[in-house]
């Protein structure tokens, strides 16, 4: 579904990452973990097509048509900050995304209403972004990324700004939404537990000294799906987490 071979990116002379191989099958969730500043977000931007890779190959699915007849974009991105446009209501923000991807107006309501209800925002459509709490804004951004029904969803630390309790609830929401829509996803996070709970495979990204970052470890997460909340404390997940933390540098190396 999405396949990268020897992918690299450099800001001018400074390499960010290099030699990244990645393969995510349809319907799979892949998580990329690593310390802050290791280039995870840049990798996600390259996968999204917002940055041109400096080397390597990247195969992504093309846009096609969704079952309801609307164009289905190849990728959708949920950025680390919610990026709701402050001059539009929550509903108008969702409609803007649907209009931009070419979804016919008649389908907008059916695309957004079930998602809003799922994340508890069905009464909040008329609110302006300035009136939303941090958690509500992040849920709204998630709904926006899902409403356009991309073939691949790219998520950059989508729950970083919410408190731990809400975070777990949102993780469960995301899993259910991905399962319901059969969406392929790549998730970037620095939270190892979150990565293992959500993903089918976890890639550990890190860099040595000033060199380009690369994938240091791959972990196949063979835990049952659908994931249940108890799994967060499952010994198998905890064992995998300590293995992943073992290869992650404690501090950002210079």
């Amino acid at each position: 579904m999405i396949r990268a071979r020897g992918l690299a990116y450099a800001f001018g002379e400074r390499p960010v990452f290099a030699g990244v191989d990645l393969e995510v099958l349809a319907g799979e969730v892949c998580a990329v973990v690593g310390p802050s500043g290791c280039g995870k977000t840049t990798l996600l931007r390259v996968l999204a097509g917002l940055l041109e890779p400096s080397a390597g190959s990247l195969a992504r699915p093309g846009a096609d048509t969704a079952p309801d007849g609307a164009p289905r974009p190849a990728v959708g991105v949920a950025f680390q900050d919610p990026r709701l446009l402050p001059w539009m209501s929550l509903r108008a923000n969702l409609d803007f995304a649907l209009e931009a991807t070419g979804c016919p107006r008649a389908l907008w309501e059916s695309r957004t209403a079930p998602l809003l209800e799922r994340v508890g925002l069905d009464q909040a459509g008329a609110l302006m972004p300035g009136e939303l709490s941090g958690g509500m804004a992040q849920r709204a951004a998630l709904v926006r990324a899902l409403a356009i029904r991309p073939r691949v969803l790219l998520l950059d630390e989508p729950f970083s700004a919410v408190d731990p309790l809400l975070r777990e609830a949102l993780q469960d929401d995301l899993l259910q939404l991905l399962r319901d829509t059969g969406t392929t996803a790549v998730l970037v996070t620095h939270d190892v537990g979150e990565a293992l709970y959500l993903a089918d495979q976890v890639l550990v990204m890190a860099r040595d000294g000033g060199a380009a970052a690369t994938i240091r470890e791959r972990v196949a997460v063979d835990l049952p799906r659908p994931r249940q909340p108890e799994l967060r404390h499952d010994p198998r997940l905890l064992a995998m987490a300590s293995k992943v933390r073992g290869v992650m540098p404690r501090r950002r190396s210079h």
């Binding site: 974009p73 001059w87 539009m88 991807t101 356009i148």
Partner: peptide, 24 residues
């Protein structure tokens, strides 16, 4: 970051002008 959002959605330049650049 608003322009990047619009680009990630594949918004046409006209839509970006009316819904993003002008209100911003």
């Amino acid at each position: 970051h608003y322009l990047e959002l619009a680009r990630s959605l594949g918004a046409r330049p006209g839509l970006v002008l009316w819904r993003v650049r002008l209100p911003a």
